[in-house]
């Protein structure tokens, strides 16, 4: 089990990690999600031992890893853009970690071939890595990281550089592989779809601190903070108050059950565009400032007294048109102000 306690990393004066606490249980897949610059990659590098923390502790099964060099941690790291060895062929890359374990040549070869087969690249042994496509390079990088059987596998934006269709296919393959091998994994991404498709638990990071940790569906439907909500697509956030009867805001009264923990006072109500609807009798009015086609719907931007709001619609109203907006209360979340 990986335990990270109060980890703090600085680059010069810039704080990259500011007191991060995180555990990854055996066979658990944890994904760190956040915008670029939030400290995700630094978290991986500090865990790997490639960055020296200023304070805090990284430990594995209770053993403090401070002073343990990266090559002795038995962690695997799959780099962003892969960092394959350009001077070695595919099998040379995959076999590297096994060779470092000083295993017999036959064992190294068999292990590397097995790892390649596992990612569906049997037969690619002697191809040059520069000649591979992006997806193939990604698989080689994964096979290379998996081959020495690391006790923790870390992945930095594993699918980041690939096109959308490939990304979706590889994400489901990765999930299958993680489950079948019982891998303990910590990976980072800025892509929500990737995180929710792969992870047992999702961590949302914001400028060096953890904003929320939870199961994917819990985080997806109940972001804990306004930052997490906006990052996960809750584009419409308005002021509200809570009292004994319910939640009051510009959308009208909302059920008290939306804010079970709040004792009362000022809060915020957040909703995704598909929780809003164009409704001539809706409580909020505004005029349309534009709309964008989004495959199965239009995203309509409406200027209101509450600020700009986004609503999903099947047919877009004309720009400048006056519209009313309504909220589906069951899809709204209440956040601390």
């Amino acid at each position: 089990m990986l335990e990270i306690e109060q980890l703090r990393v600085q680059y010069g004066d810039a704080v990259a990690l500011d007191g991060v606490d995180l555990t990854v249980a055996d066979h658990e897949v944890v994904c760190v999600l956040g915008p670029s610059g939030s400290g995700k990659s630094t978290l991986l590098r500090a865990t790997a031992g490639l960055e020296l923390p200023l304070a805090g502790r990284v430990s594995w099964d209770g053993e403090d890893l401070a002073g343990v060099a990266p090559h002795r941690r038995q962690f695997g790291l799959m780099f962003q853009d892969h960092a394959l060895f350009p001077h070695r062929d595919v099998i040379g890359n995959v076999a590297f970690g096994l060779r470092m374990q000083r295993r017999a040549t036959a064992e190294v070869d068999a292990g590397a071939r097995a790892a390649l087969a596992r990612v569906g690249l049997a037969g690619f042994e002697h191809r040059r890595v520069r000649e591979l496509s992006g997806g193939e390079q990604q698989r080689v990088a994964l096979a290379r990281a998996l081959a020495p059987d690391p006790r923790l596998l870390m992945l930095d934006e594993p699918l980041g550089s690939l096109d959308r269709e490939l990304r979706e296919r590889l994400a489901s393959e990765l999930r299958t592989l993680f489950v079948s091998l019982g891998v303990t994994a910590l990976f980072v991404t800025h892509d929500q779809d990737e995180a929710f498709a792969l992870a047992d638990r999702v961590v949302i990071m914001r400028s060096g601190t953890i904003e929320q940790i939870g199961a994917p569906q819990e985080v997806w439907s109940h972001p804990a903070t306004e930052f997490a909500a906006r990052f996960l697509g809750f584009a419409n956030v308005v002021d509200a108050t809570v009292d004994a009867d319910g939640v009051r805001c510009a959308w009208g009264p909302l059920p008290r059950s939306l804010a079970p923990g709040d004792s009362g006072g000022r809060v915020r109500v957040a909703a995704r565009p598909d929780a809003l609807r164009l409704d001539p009798d809706g409580p909020v009015r505004g005029h349309v400032s534009g709309s964008t086609f989004r495959r199965d719907h239009f995203l309509v931007r409406v200027e209101t007294d509450l600020g700009p709001l986004e609503v999903a619609a099947e047919t877009p109203p004309d720009v400048g048109e006056n519209v009313g907006l309504g909220l589906d209360p069951s899809a709204a979340v209440v956040l601390p102000a």
Binding site: L50, A69, A83, F85, P86, F96, G97, R144
Partner: peptide, 24 residues
């Protein structure tokens, strides 16, 4: 990152130098 990749795969610093810098 090639040196870091080698270290993560278990290569000690001198081995990293031999396997990455010297080879290239």
């Amino acid at each position: 990152r090639l040196r870091e990749a080698a270290a993560m795969l278990g290569a000690a610093p001198r081995r990293v130098w031999m396997e990455v810098d010297l080879r290239i």
